[in-house]
């Protein structure tokens, strides 16, 4: 019995390691920002700021709820599970204090949005990144 449980844990570890891709935080090449830290990223994505410290206005762009990228980003960058994030937004939203970021269906849709505006920030699987966007942070 113990062996079975251990092999399940190992298997689960392997499976989850397999789906955990590295995320890249991206902006348009012309956006006047070259790097961002996790705290600044959290402030933008949790609607506690809408400007980067140097004054550049940045609107966050999200991936679809429940997508691997979104779950990964919520956990690693925002430190919240999907349900915690959903409770957080219910409090902000229904008190009229802001909305969750707009969602796009996949990496290429996010990149297309971000590449087209100096005022957007997004995140995608690092493997999807091409030179239409600029990486300002990698989240392993």
């Amino acid at each position: 019995m113990k062996k079975i449980i251990i092999s399940f844990i190992v298997l689960a570890g392997l499976l989850s390691a397999g789906t955990h891709a590295e995320l890249a935080v991206i902006v348009a090449p012309s956006t006047n920002i070259d790097s961002i830290n996790i705290e600044q990223l959290q402030r933008l994505y949790l609607n506690r700021a809408n400007r980067f410290p140097n004054g550049v206005r940045l609107l966050p762009v999200d991936q679809k709820t429940g997508s691997p990228q979104q779950l990964e980003f919520a956990r690693k960058a925002l430190g919240k599970s999907a349900t915690e994030l959903s409770k957080y937004w219910s409090r902000r939203m229904f008190s009229g204090k802001g909305h969750p970021p707009r969602q796009y269906k996949d990496d290429s849709a996010v990149m297309q949005q971000v590449a087209g505006s100096e005022n957007l920030i997004g995140y995608v699987d690092t493997a999807s990144v091409d030179d239409s966007v600029k990486i300002i942070l990698q989240i392993p």
Binding site: K87, S90, R91, F94, S95, G96, K97
Partner: peptide, 9 residues
């Protein structure tokens, strides 16, 4: 109070 009707919150 801001969201007292929203039990989910």
């Amino acid at each position: 109070s801001d969201y007292i009707e929203v039990g989910y919150a």
